[in-house]
Design a protein around this nucleic acid. Sequence first.
DNA 1: TATTGTTATACTCTATAACTATA
DNA 2: TATAGTTATAGAGTATAACAATA
Lengths: 148, 148
Amino acid sequence: MTAPSPSVSETLTFRLGVLGALATARFTERLDALALKPKHVGLLALLDAGAPASQLELARTMGVAPSLMVTLADHLGELGAVGRERDPADRRRQVLTLTDHGRELLAGAARAASELDEELAASLTPARRTALDRALRDLAEAEGMPVT
Amino acid sequence: MTAPSPSVSETLTFRLGVLGALATARFTERLDALALKPKHVGLLALLDAGAPASQLELARTMGVAPSLMVTLADHLGELGAVGRERDPADRRRQVLTLTDHGRELLAGAARAASELDEELAASLTPARRTALDRALRDLAEAEGMPVT
DNA sequence: TATTGTTATACTCTATAACTATA
DNA sequence: TATAGTTATAGAGTATAACAATA
């Protein structure tokens, strides 16, 4: 006995995918003024959440290739958003640290995301909005994302 | 007076984006056995939901370029999942229709998504899962996605 | 010899622009 | 002349593989 599947467009998987792509596309537009892409924001948020870390560790956490981490760190370095220092104890490691300007950029990205949140959630009742926040927070935590 | 922004990783925008990308990546893996990509599933679902439509109309609904619709339709045509017929009333229009095999493929994709749903939502209480489903459904409807 | 970071290269996805057929 | 579809081309994003520096 197998339960009948719901139609694909009713699934959590499909809706998360479509709505996530929509959210990211709109976020990308708003980040343009800060010269950031969503992945840069993810990296800045990671640095803000935890201790300074080497590029390889950060790449693993974000699930991207080490070579992409180089590109992301290069760009953030040019913006003055992160500092890069060789670890004195192991000179192979490049340790990234958030600068004051990086914190300002991250705050700008948070404002942009926050504004977009209002637009996205405009159709939800306050109760549904709260329930959505809680459920997404649980999912994020279960997937190992840093939950502040 | 401006309210302080939450940290970016706490926003709906950021969480939807990251979790949506995660869901889509895992869905893509599972669809591999069916020789489909998520966009193919989106197109099949659209055809299943409504009347047969021309490629250009479908491209607009999905928010993709007409040239991409050609590629998607080509692939689904090769799989025997859709039929393509010139509209007799306007021979420029290619009208796509779902075949029986297309319906089977769509059912397979729905099963894959449904299985993934269980995996994704495993950490949620039943109440939170229901609340999440409702909130995402509301968002989907507000964004003009067909809500079955 | 193993590991970190970097560079070189290639692949996937998607859009824009040019073109064909039909209106 | 305008529109639907197609084909050709190009760009963004990202991964894999080769390489350099350090351990």
